[in-house]
């Protein structure tokens, strides 16, 4: 409720400059408007999270525990082998923490919003969002921020720095910048895939099984690409493109990339997935028949 009132109040501002002369400044105003809306959504999320402090902390503990578990699994494996394909132990640690970073930035911004879409559709609450003078996809995607995600992302960065030290890496500024940009592409891939999956709830009422399945896909995202060969490698690189998302940024930092092709593929994947998700979203919203009276 609160959310809605704040959104409509920010809507009172002039939306577009009159006449076509000031297209650029109209764009600027539009952007400012959306940023201020997003600011409000952030404030709401913080207030909501702080209402359940113990739960908030316990969820962070759960996620950290799972992260530790994955690292422990790799530690056990490296007790018995010195490498997986071309990957050594600390390189894999780097990969796991990169994957964790991407997963939790995605969680912080999008995951809750995506899993709630089916509920919005089932209860007909989506009606209100369609009526607001804001881009509905924007609202559906950014409604809530999960602050715990940032804590876990920070933990991932800490492990990355430690692994980097063990590997005696001295990444250049260019490497760090391209790591950051590729990470953004990876989050875009995750977000687009998840929106496509969540959009199926316009047809099936309970899409929870599908959304749950996405957790399993994260398990593949954190595997070194060398672990897959043949059919699986192609399948998880292009059909369900989740193998590259953590591997490519990691390989940039580790200087394991032989050619820039993989970087290009990931960037392209980001755009293709985003385009596909926009098409699916538009197509799905057209199908929307409100659940309420």
């Amino acid at each position: 409720m609160n959310e809605r009132r704040q959104n409509s109040s920010s809507e009172q501002r002039p939306v577009s400059a009159t006449g076509g002369t000031e297209a650029v400044s109209a764009w600027g105003i539009e952007l400012r408007r959306y940023l201020s809306i997003y600011g409000m959504l952030w404030r709401n999320s913080v207030v909501r999270e702080m209402g359940f402090k113990v739960n908030f902390i316990l969820w962070i503990v759960v996620e950290l525990l799972w992260f530790a578990l994955q690292l422990a699994f790799m530690a056990v494996i490296y007790q018995h082998t010195s490498s997986i394909g071309t990957w050594t132990q600390w390189e894999v640690v780097m990969l796991q923490s990169t994957s964790h970073l991407i997963q939790h930035l995605f969680t912080a911004f999008f995951l809750n919003n995506m899993t709630q879409l089916s509920e919005l559709i089932r209860t007909g609450k989506l009606d209100f969002m369609l009526l607001l003078p804001v881009n509905t996809r924007f609202l559906v995607s950014f409604r809530q921020v999960d602050l715990g995600g940032f804590v876990n992302a920070a933990a991932a960065v800490a492990v990355m720095i430690y692994a980097g030290n063990r590997l005696e890496l001295h990444p250049t500024a260019a490497q760090i910048v391209s790591f950051g940009l590729l990470t953004l592409c990876s989050i875009l891939v995750h977000y687009s895939l998840m929106l496509i999956l969540a959009s199926t709830s316009f047809w099936t009422v309970r899409a929870q099984g599908i959304v749950w399945g996405y957790y399993n896909l994260f398990n593949i995202a954190r595997m070194p690409d060398a672990a897959f060969r043949g059919f699986f490698k192609v399948f998880f690189s292009f059909v369900l493109p989740i193998l590259l998302v953590a591997n490519v940024p990691t390989k940039v930092v580790l200087q394991k990339l032989n050619s820039p092709t993989e970087m290009l593929i990931l960037v392209l994947l980001g755009f293709v997935c985003f385009g596909a998700s926009e098409a699916v979203w538009r197509f799905s919203v057209k199908r929307y028949t409100s659940a309420s009276s």
Partner: peptide
């Protein structure tokens, strides 16, 4: 059914991982 099918995905990944490890040993 969805649960069962999606549940096989991490299993495939783990098996694939072990196969690579054995291939390198």
């Amino acid at each position: 059914l969805f649960r069962a099918v999606f549940g096989l995905i991490p299993l495939m990944a783990t098996l694939s991982l072990w196969r690579t490890i054995y291939a390198g040993n």
